[in-house]
Write a protein that binds this DNA or RNA. Structure first.
Lengths: 143, 143
DNA sequence: TGATATTGTATAGCCTGCTATGCAATCGCA
DNA sequence: TGCGATTGCATAGCAGGCTATACAATATCA
């Protein structure tokens, strides 16, 4: 059985994701922000006060992963967990001023990282890559 | 600043890689093999007795990451670390019979996982995706 | 209404990444 | 030849994935 890692979609996906994460982490360093935290902020900037369950669903990670990420964000002063009198099981995840303040810089850093990664591709190729990744994700999720 | 995660190469790369890893993990479960261990085996099946430094270089992970992965593999009886009289700093990483025995099944599992992930794409699209990922990886590594 | 099922979180424990350190062995050169 | 630089690994500590558990609050329905 021949198996060339340089031609394996799974190997390449893993490698590419690690390189993306490393670049993003560098760019976020001055903002005191970690990549996974940015993803959560992306949702909360759009709609503040979401529950952990909603965030878990929207970012497609496991509930335990989200719980831990939120704990680190709370520790770092990015969010507060606000009790919900209507349902004592849940707590609304609320942005702190600090989290609102980093928005522009964080978005710019992420956009720059994407641009940097794709700078070897033309417009057409970049769109194709994104479309194909979306397709693979859908395929893998549907099972 | 608009930033759609569904159109961000970085977000998609991360998501796709997680789904790949999850699928591979499932398929490897009966083999008592973890995804990162498989990558190491891939190198050692080709050339047994490599040093940790060479493996680190070939798989493009940090030295500490490789050291830990190798420790788990040794614990799990997949490799032995053999002292090298020529250079007492290094130890050759040697496959155990157990590691050689899982080769065919592991390769088949990985190939199946790749095929499953790409089954929504035609031959042409799959090749394009792989080529574009290779290009992005090269771009990100060169800086 | 009360028992059962479901839902929302938290926690423990593991894998795989990373950075930062520290140390021993080897190399290279003045 | 000897000493400073380099190389090869190990370890500590953290982020962010995951599975498995546990538990309280809420919902459902006989």
């Amino acid at each position: 059985m021949e198996f060339a890692k340089t031609h394996s979609a799974g190997f390449l996906a893993n490698h590419m994701a690690r390189l993306f994460a490393a670049g993003l982490q560098q760019r976020f360093k001055e903002l005191d922000l970690a990549p996974a935290q940015f993803m959560v902020l992306l949702e909360l900037w759009e709609e503040d006060g979401l529950t952990q369950a909603v965030l878990t669903d929207r970012l497609d990670v496991e509930q335990a992963t989200m719980a831990n990420t939120l704990s680190r964000m709370q520790r770092d002063g990015l969010i507060d967990r606000i009790a919900n009198p209507k349902d004592k099981r849940t707590r609304g995840i609320k942005l702190t001023p600090k989290a609102r303040e980093v928005r522009q810089k964080a978005l710019a850093a992420a956009a720059t990282q994407n641009a940097e990664a794709l700078k070897g591709l033309n417009e057409q190729e970049a769109e194709t890559l994104i479309a194909l990744m979306q397709k693979v994700i859908l395929t893998l999720k549907r099972r």
